[in-house]
Nucleic acid binder design. Structure first.
Lengths: 146, 146
DNA sequence: TATTGTTATACTCTATAACTATA
DNA sequence: TATAGTTATAGAGTATAACAATA
């Protein structure tokens, strides 16, 4: 070190909250992806599967909106889940344009298994935060507005 | 609404802190990108430019490590900054393998301008968080460990 | 042998436009 | 005419392997 104060190279970026958010989120999501990978899931497919398990019959457009993704991009995600036999596409009787998504028994089991693995992963990543601090973190994040 | 409790479709995901982090970070970085775009900068190029302005003479490998990116991916970022005449590449005399990165006068001015725009953007995005809450948020994020 | 910058490549996520079939 | 699902496509970020020049 050439300087007694030993300033980090990215010190000029640390004044930006968004920089801290991005670094931390990248760490967390990368670890979550590693946890999901051996189960044949990625973050996007796990998220979609979870919504479908919690709201059977949800339409693709509703699903995409809930996850903040484009309808067009949701198609490949749903294709993957369908090919893995974790969900089924069923044409709606009331509105024959729409497709209702339903989880299979295998899909429900896989979602439960992945959920538990992610809760364990979060217990590890957030081990240095108390339950109150974890709730505070989510609360503060929810106060950010577009 | 069919249910009196009116549960959101992504409710099953909200128990995961990583989900809140990802949604919030996507919002913040998307807005930051919109702010930087008219200045000819993206988040990655702004970050690199900031490090180079704060640590003139930094090497490419050091820069990439500081930003948590691959050396190979930093090349295109630095190419862009060089083509915009905001930085220069100078072969090191001590170690002729290495390249020292220096900001130009125009680069320093552009970085200052972009920094101010991002501080304004953060004041808008984090308007509902007090100064203490903003510090708490960063503090909590720093407690997350790999 | 190891490291620096570089190229090539591939994969994920994301964003937009346009098509089809239904409403 | 508007909407639901779909296809095609392109951009940005990210990850790995391999190479030439230099240490």
């Amino acid at each position: 070190m050439t300087d007694t104060t030993d300033i980090a190279l990215d010190d000029g970026l640390r004044e930006l909250i968004g920089y801290s958010m991005k670094r931390a989120t990248t760490m967390v999501t990368a670890d979550a992806a590693r946890v999901l990978e051996p189960m044949g899931l990625r973050i996007t497919t796990f998220s979609a599967l979870t919504v479908i398990c919690n709201a059977p019959g949800v339409r693709q457009t509703e699903l995409a909106a809930a996850l903040g993704m484009e309808r067009s991009n949701s198609v490949a995600v749903i294709d993957t889940l369908e090919k893995s036999h974790w969900i089924t596409r069923e044409r709606s009787a009331q509105d024959r344009r729409a497709i209702a998504l339903h989880p299979t028994t295998a899909g429900i089991m896989r979602q439960k298994q992945a959920r538990l693995a992610l809760l364990t992963h979060e217990d590890r990543m957030f081990a240095d935060l108390s339950p109150i601090e974890r709730r505070d973190l989510v609360k503060l994040l929810s106060k950010i507005r577009a």
